Simulated scan of single mutants.
Amino acid sequence: MRLLVIIIILLFSCSTISYTQPTSDKLIRKGVSLHDKGRYQDAISYYQQALKANPSSMSATYEMALSYLHLKDYDNALKYSTKVINANFKPLLVDAYCVKSTALADMNKLDQSVKLLNEALERCGDEYLLHYNLGLSYFKAKNLKLSIFHLQKAIEIDTTHPSAFLLYAYVLSDSDRWIQSFLSFHFFLLLEPNTDRSKDAFGEMYDIITQKIPANSPRLTPEDGIDRQKIYDQLRTMQPKVEDQRFQYAYFEQASRTIFFTLSQMQNDTRKGMLWDFYVPIYTEILESGYFETYCRYVSVSYFPVSLEWWNNNTAKVDGFISWFEDGQGSTVDNEDDFGDDSDL
């Protein structure tokens, strides 16, 4: 009889555990869905219910921290992210460090944010998000040199995340490295061509190639072996005389071609670094692919309505470019005109 009672208790316990876990997971999924819609307080109520069902759920704890961060409730964001960190919950450890460091940075506790992220690197190893967040914290602290270092590390680890390229572009611009900033904005727009921040990024990039730089400015001195004065003079001679988007687009395309071609001609085995090992080979390949105009239309769709119109009217070229890019480049077409009629500028 005693054995039967024990079996019944064990069966009841197992059924309770199996019931609690799916219930908790379902509540978390509902909360995440609400979070993604910007309903952060509603999301938190579901995470609280999930924690009642399963008090040890680190997933619910982390999601609480993230939603509180979006609500700018930094004390609670710190509280719940610290719980995940202290629990050493590996699946969400890096993310928890990022939430906690962001909360600290937003509270203007930049030294603590940097210290925490360096601790995270020692504990978790080289992770894209940790280096990115370090780059962001150093940028806010106006330490541009270390910001550049960590953003480059983030990009080396993962070249598919647009945010690193976007922040890298801004940091380079603030460091007066405007040509490399221009290239980084380009790559961000290649990864993320048509969002709200894409339009802002394109505007910043366009300002770079239309800026008026005073004579003898440090911004015209050589940059990593690039004769910036020569490129600047070339850009000045081709700038549009009227503020019409069709002429502005044409100038953007011509300026991009000029910068890409100039850098490709300078490429050799002695030049090292992200500029020469990453950006220049990619843009040289795009320049020689036969899809250069299509590419320029692609990265400018958020800014120029004429580019979006062109994109919609030239589906064959678009499909060809996308296939070429997704296949890892390496193949070219003889002439873009083979893919149908161009619309006018």
Rank of each mutant, 00 (worst) to 15 (best):
V5H: 11
I7Y: 02
C14W: 15
S15Y: 11
K26P: 00
K26W: 09
G31E: 00
H35D: 12
Q41N: 10
D42V: 02
Y46E: 12
Q49A: 07
Q49L: 13
A60F: 07
E63R: 08
A65F: 06
N76W: 07
T82N: 07
K83F: 03
V84F: 00
V84L: 03
V84H: 05
N86I: 02
N88T: 08
N88Q: 13
V94A: 02
D95V: 03
A96E: 06
V99I: 12
V99M: 09
K100E: 14
S101N: 07
L104Y: 06
M107W: 12
S113R: 08
Y128T: 13
N133A: 01
I155D: 00
D158K: 05
T159L: 04
S163T: 05
L167T: 15
Y168N: 06
D174A: 13
W178D: 09
I179V: 14
F182A: 01
S184H: 11
H186L: 13
H186K: 12
L189Q: 10
L191R: 05
T195Q: 07
D196V: 09
Y206D: 02
I208T: 03
I209K: 00
I213L: 08
P218A: 00
R219W: 05
E223C: 03
K230H: 10
I231P: 11
Q248S: 11
Y249R: 15
E253G: 01
A255P: 03
T262Q: 12
Q265H: 07
K272N: 08
K272G: 00
D277R: 01
V280H: 07
T284W: 04
I286Q: 03
S289E: 07
F292H: 02
F292Y: 15
E293C: 02
R297A: 03
V299Q: 11
V299S: 01
S302Q: 08
S302L: 06
S307L: 08
W311T: 09
I322V: 14
S323R: 15
F325L: 14
E326L: 13
Q329P: 04
T332S: 09
F339M: 13
S343R: 13
D344F: 05
